[in-house]
């Protein structure tokens, strides 16, 4: 399937069909998830309604990490197999992942203040997510700094893979250290500990945000491919004249 995407023409055809569909699914899921999260889900016993921030904070956190993992996979594909669209995919995911990381950090602070009485603490989870955010920024800076696209994509791929070492640290930070941030309650070896009345709306919101992110990535990839086509046309014209 992945190799089927290697052909830009084919990707453009497939994404043209997929994009409106996945955007529609995202909107539908938000239509279900949003009232559920804000109204129908029960408030937390101790934190009352402030815990509703969870329904945007947790999906943002998951996407921050998932998008970086996607970038890392694309980087491997780009470096090892020279997959034609891998660098486009990585480049498209980066700003979106960075944005969701920022959302995660800010909504986390907005949740932390009523819950812990602190906007920010330097515990392992928050610090490693902040590091993830800076790695995203460095990745974007590297793409911007190198003019030649091939070189830029390979350099960025190297940086992405080096920074991937941070991902397990983020994930396991709440297990390896005494953190103020709560331990994992969904993605655990023994299964989720969260009550279904909270877990189900969370999953719907997470799926909604994921579909939105997927649509955004597809759209950005299309932009890069269209731009590449325009550039190669311009180059060919210049050579012909």
């Amino acid at each position: 399937m992945i190799s089927g995407f290697a052909n830009p023409e084919r990707f453009m055809r497939l994404s043209a069909k997929l994009l409106p569909w996945i955007s529609g699914v995202a909107v539908a899921l938000f239509a279900v998830g949003l009232p559920w999260a804000l109204y129908f889900a029960p408030p937390d016993y101790q934190q009352h309604d402030s815990a509703r921030i969870m329904y945007v904070h947790v999906p943002a956190a998951w996407l921050a990490m998932a998008l970086y993992a996607g970038m890392a996979a694309a980087s491997v594909s780009s470096l090892v197999w020279r997959h034609a669209l891998a660098d486009v995919a990585a480049r498209a995911m980066a700003p979106i992942g960075a944005a969701f990381t920022a959302v995660c950090l800010v909504t986390g602070a907005l949740w932390g203040q009523p819950m812990w009485g602190a906007w920010w603490v330097w515990d392992a989870r928050l610090t490693s997510v902040l590091v993830l955010f800076f790695v995203y920024l460095g990745y974007l800076a590297l793409w911007a700094a190198i003019e030649d696209e091939t070189r830029a994509s390979r350099a960025a791929a190297i940086l992405c893979l080096v920074g991937a070492a941070n991902l397990p640290i983020v994930k396991f930070s709440v297990d390896w250290w005494n953190t103020l941030h709560q331990p994992a309650s969904v993605f655990r070896a023994d299964g989720p500990t969260m009550h279904p009345s909270l877990l189900h709306p969370l999953l719907v919101m997470a799926l909604a945000f994921t579909c939105a992110a997927a649509a955004l990535v597809l759209a950005e990839m299309r932009v890069f491919i269209l731009r590449r086509r325009a550039e190669s046309l311009t180059l060919r014209r210049r050579r012909a004249t």
């Binding site: 009352h48 402030s50 907005l110 939105a212 955004l216 950005e220």
Partner: peptide
Amino acid sequence: DGYAWFVWPSYALAFGVVILLAARA
């Protein structure tokens, strides 16, 4: 429940970012 200043800006930010990214794309 008194947490309006925390909850609503969170949702506004999350959806604002998604909408901005979509508009930009």
